[in-house]
Amino acid sequence: MIRPHHFGVTVTDLDRAVEFYRDTFGLDSVERFAVSGAAFAAGVGVEGATGRFAHFVLDGARIELVEYDPAGPAASESDVNQPGATHLGLAVDDLDAFYADLDPGVETISEPRTTESGTRILFVRDPDGTLIEVLEP
């Protein structure tokens, strides 16, 4: 049986990313840990890799932030419609209130919009450029 466990986001600075997700979305980091060793490096396919991790639990699934050493090259910033693009989707009860409370430094794609399906959406970027769709179903 398959069930969600986590959605991973690679970040350049774990502490900065934890602060962003905590402050922007009100999430509490429930677990922080580091992983290293030959099995980890072989498993992720990066020689000598170590990782620092932070997990946030959301309704039974986790958002996993990971900072790797050595860090790889930055992925090109992609638009949501490019093949291979990824994004996180997080639901809120009141998108307008969420938008009004956003720190002015948080990059947004547009103001909140209502789609043809009636869902209200807003895309923001985390400090590393990862797209996050904030929606009010």
Results as ranks from 00 to 15, higher is better:
99 Y>D: 06
89 G>L: 01
89 G>T: 09
69 D>S: 00
40 F>L: 07
41 A>C: 13
100 A>N: 05
81 N>W: 15
37 G>D: 01
58 L>R: 14
101 D>P: 00
66 V>L: 09
103 D>G: 07
70 P>V: 04
99 Y>R: 13
53 F>M: 07
66 V>A: 05
97 A>L: 15
66 V>D: 03
81 N>A: 15
72 G>S: 09
69 D>C: 00
63 I>A: 01
92 V>M: 10
35 V>T: 08
74 A>C: 10
92 V>D: 13
40 F>N: 02
27 L>T: 08
96 D>E: 13
39 A>L: 08
28 D>A: 15
102 L>W: 07
39 A>T: 13
77 E>R: 14
27 L>N: 05
84 G>Y: 05
65 L>C: 04
59 D>F: 02
28 D>H: 09
80 V>K: 04
49 A>G: 00
50 T>S: 09
50 T>R: 06
44 V>S: 04
53 F>Q: 02
78 S>W: 04
41 A>V: 11
61 A>M: 01
88 L>R: 02
53 F>C: 10
63 I>M: 11
51 G>K: 01
69 D>R: 00
56 F>Q: 13
52 R>W: 01
63 I>P: 02
68 Y>F: 13
27 L>K: 04
70 P>C: 06
46 V>L: 09
75 A>S: 14
35 V>N: 03
85 A>C: 07
99 Y>W: 12
73 P>G: 15
91 A>Q: 15
86 T>H: 00
95 L>W: 04
86 T>N: 01
47 E>T: 05
98 F>K: 06
95 L>H: 06
34 A>I: 04
36 S>W: 12
54 A>F: 07
70 P>M: 04
41 A>D: 11
25 F>H: 00
78 S>Y: 11
34 A>E: 12
86 T>S: 03
76 S>C: 03
34 A>N: 07
86 T>I: 04
36 S>H: 13
92 V>Q: 07
60 G>Y: 07
33 F>A: 04
86 T>D: 01
74 A>D: 12
56 F>N: 09
66 V>P: 01
43 G>L: 12
47 E>N: 02
102 L>N: 04
46 V>S: 05
28 D>F: 07
42 A>R: 07
49 A>F: 00
63 I>L: 14
77 E>T: 15
36 S>V: 07
90 L>S: 06
69 D>G: 03
50 T>Y: 02
69 D>E: 02
71 A>Y: 00
57 V>I: 14
80 V>T: 11
28 D>S: 13
78 S>N: 06
85 A>K: 10
89 G>W: 04
57 V>W: 11
